[in-house]
Design a protein around this nucleic acid. Structure first.
Lengths: 233, 233
DNA sequence: TATTAATTGTTAAATTTATAACAACGCAAA
DNA sequence: TTTGCGTTGTTATAAATTTAACAATTAATA
């Protein structure tokens, strides 16, 4: 079995964490650190040191005992694994607030993953550039995607347009779609789809805050009960 | 054991899916549907019908055989579970593109979860309103959070400010934090934290697209090999 | 030099999550 | 009426993911 076959079987969660490790490591590098321990990475990511070591084991990286992991080496290895050699081009569909936020976050951050085009329906935006990325008319999608060899599309259009946009992307030969709208889309077999919805996460936080509030309230009641019971004697 | 204790033990993943089911169901309701099958919900969410039925079993909802689930009833039940009776107030920290995008997505969508304040450092924004939500000076955070009884903070400030913002939120007595910046924050025990980072997901899509590209390339090579082998005879 | 403490790498166990299997039921059509 | 099909609800099984346990090793220190 080739090394690349091992990598294909990396757990999905490990892939996600590798991306996060790299981001953390890049920050550490800026701060002139050259080595890092598993428990340091773990603390940043709110996970356990064992999990960090296990992930690194899976990608075959060895640290130095009592010195930890070489940050630059680890960044390079993670990049080897998750980046494409040739680089991958990305387009953002919809230059509203969210599209522009993504562009800001991302522009110039990765060498191997470049946002090279954006699209919108608004005539005021078409023809302009945001962060030096040109904004095209969304009706030119297929033409531009093929010309610029764009493989991934990020959908940030209004929710009502998400499905139509996904269809157009598929028709244009896109390989992967990241849908940021709260309305799920359907794509045919062979197109990798990730739904990424901001509302679910907020509702999850809300649920656990609510639960904690109720737990705290229950405890107060229980303390009162105990107090009453004791005074019965 | 009380019913509420059962709900406390709902799997995290089920909580997330319940939020997604509700969103899908609300759309179905708008389209004048009154009942829905598990396989229909499943299709929308890219999961299996079994999983839908299992989630609904966990929350104790029963559908009608050969008719499916009553959409309104199910929405109400899910709302009972994930919403707080009294409602929860939310603040957005950072009225950049991302903060405004979230506000747009969210405003007026939920009754029990309301964004009631936003904060920024930019004097041009302070004092104004976005989607009818006032924007305060971020130095007034503690005062406003206590006055407005805000329990959840969404961090959408520049990444360099994420930790400082989180600290300020904790000091103001926040119960839950949703961090949208790519830089993880630390919070003390008792504050519920969810890190939600947009870059990881994009890199994940990129990884699987790359993998698929390589797999496709390998197959071409294998076909060539086979062809050569056959012609050897 | 011997001892102690800290760290990695890895196997084993536990936990969480998803899938499969199937009984029970009810409607529709033969 | 009876047969067959499609659906739910639930238990059992499998898969994925995390955590625990611990040997091996090294550096620092007594």
């Amino acid at each position: 079995m080739k090394a690349s076959d091992t990598l294909k079987q990396l757990p999905h969660k490990t892939i996600e964490r590798l991306s996060q490790y790299r981001r953390a490591l890049l920050i550490c590098l800026e701060n002139k650190k050259d080595h890092i321990f598993s428990h340091e990475i773990a603390k940043i990511q709110h996970i356990t040191p064992v999990q960090v070591r296990r992930d690194l084991m899976l990608i075959g990286y060895s640290g130095t005992l009592r010195k930890g992991y070489n940050i630059q080496e680890l960044i390079d290895l993670i990049s080897d694994i998750i980046d494409s050699n040739e680089g991958i081009n990305v387009a953002i569909l919809g230059m509203g607030n969210l599209g522009r936020a993504l562009l800001n976050y991302f522009s110039g951050k990765r060498h191997k993953l470049s946002i090279v085009a954006s699209f919108d329906v608004n005539p005021d935006k078409i023809g302009k550039s945001f962060n030096n990325i040109p904004c095209h008319n969304i009706t030119d999608m297929e033409k531009v995607i093929k010309r610029e060899n764009i493989e991934i599309g990020i959908i940030t259009v209004p929710a009502s347009q998400s499905m139509a946009t996904a269809k157009q992307l598929v028709k244009s030969g896109i390989k992967g779609i990241l849908n940021y709208t709260p309305k799920p889309v359907e794509v045919p077999e062979g197109v990798y789809l990730e739904e990424y919805d901001m509302i679910t996460t907020l509702e999850k936080v809300s649920f656990y805050v609510k639960m904690e509030n109720e737990r705290a309230a229950d405890q107060v009641i229980q303390r009162k009960d105990q107090g009453t019971a004791a005074s019965d004697f």
